[in-house]
Computed example of a mutant assay.
Amino acid sequence: MNFSRRRGTIAFFITLGVLLVGLAVTLQVGWIVLNERTVALAVFGIILFALLIAGVVVNTVFLVREIRRNERQDSFLNAVTHELKTPIASIRLYLETLQRRPLDEAQRQQFYTNMLADSDRLLATVEQVLKAGQLGQRHRQQSRALIDLEALVSECITITLQRHHLASDAIVLQPVSGGVHLRVMGLAEDLRIAVLNLLDNAVKYSLEGVHVRCSLAITHYTWATLRITDTGVGLPPNQHKRIFRRFYRVPGRTMQRIKGTGLGLFLVRSIARQHGGDATASSPGPNMGTTVTLTLPLANPSTSEAQPAASRPASIVKERV
């Protein structure tokens, strides 16, 4: 209902804008006809007419953009509310069960495990929202370290497999050819968030089974490239850039069934660009899978030799389990 109402509002403003432009054209033509012998008045009228048309067009564009922005923010609030309420309700249910019924030790341990998983999900949602706010702040002063990208991706894959209870072959990382170490300078926690978001998206949108393939490579001699390819729902041709916008969700019943905040890919691109890289997406079409590419500048070789210890997995903050 809300979606239809917003569509009607957008159509109303567009129609109103067209009618105002038509009225302005009519008035201008009448002005020119009545004052065709007075050149100065005609020129003055043409200038006013151009300004009026420009104002109407700009006003209509801004109104439509504001309506769409509000629509995305409402969707975000609904999604965040769901993501927060679901684990809280689950934890409450487990606690009430533990309080009211006598359970054996095995059941208790299973309940504790489930509650811990729900609390991790709750914490992940909160951290995602907070991180989106932090990335909006300019001039973030944080010290960067040397990071082994392959080690970071391997750890993120392990976390994702545990988080979604997947088999070990559901997400596969192809080894870097030649045994080359891909090291980048950056914030380990931010890059970890970016890779985890990419993997979570690949899993969530693989409705017919998870078959995710990750690959690392050096491109153009100075760039480290991570490609994550799934066999999921894919993307329409006009959505490859829009999915990186804040709060944006791809329209369609299949996409709307999959819960999310609309912040994941926005965080990925923001983090990549703060590290001097970028994130892009490609897809052959709907139901044909998606490939998201994360590109980061390789660390200077002299830096890599000077700080080898920082590239080990120990420098990466581990998942709470």
Rank of each mutant, 00 (worst) to 15 (best):
Q110I: 09
T158A: 14
L23G: 12
A281K: 01
E208V: 07
R37C: 02
G234Q: 00
E208R: 15
Y205E: 04
A281W: 00
P301C: 00
F3H: 12
T229A: 14
T86W: 04
A89E: 15
T254N: 00
M288N: 06
L27Q: 10
R100G: 10
R144L: 12
L27N: 12
V56M: 05
I271S: 03
V129A: 10
V172P: 01
R65T: 06
L161V: 13
D118T: 02
S215P: 09
L52I: 02
L51M: 11
G136M: 10
N70R: 15
F12Y: 15
V321C: 05
R72Q: 14
N201K: 01
G178A: 05
E189Y: 13
M1G: 14
S315Y: 12
T158I: 01
A217P: 10
L199I: 01
H139G: 06
E319I: 02
V58I: 14
N78P: 00
K204T: 09
V57C: 10
S304P: 02
L48H: 06
S315G: 15
L152K: 06
W223K: 13
L294I: 00
W31S: 09
V25S: 09
L187T: 09
E105A: 15
A314V: 11
T280V: 11
E36V: 07
T81R: 14
L116W: 00
L146Q: 06
T303P: 05
T261W: 01
S119A: 14
W31M: 06
R246P: 02
D230C: 04
A79Q: 10
A202F: 01
I10N: 04
V172E: 05
W31V: 03
V39F: 15
L84H: 05
Q162Y: 03
A145V: 15
I67N: 07
I157D: 03
T113V: 09
F44D: 08
V233N: 03
A310K: 08
V268T: 08
V64D: 07
V58C: 05
L267C: 04
M255K: 03
I157L: 07
V25M: 10
A50T: 08
P251V: 00
T38L: 06
G136N: 10
L130Y: 11
R242W: 00
G178M: 01
D200F: 03
I14L: 08
R246N: 12
V33K: 15
G260M: 05
Q107D: 14
L23S: 11
G232V: 00
E155N: 09
P313N: 03
G45T: 07
Q162S: 09
R213D: 08
Q28K: 08
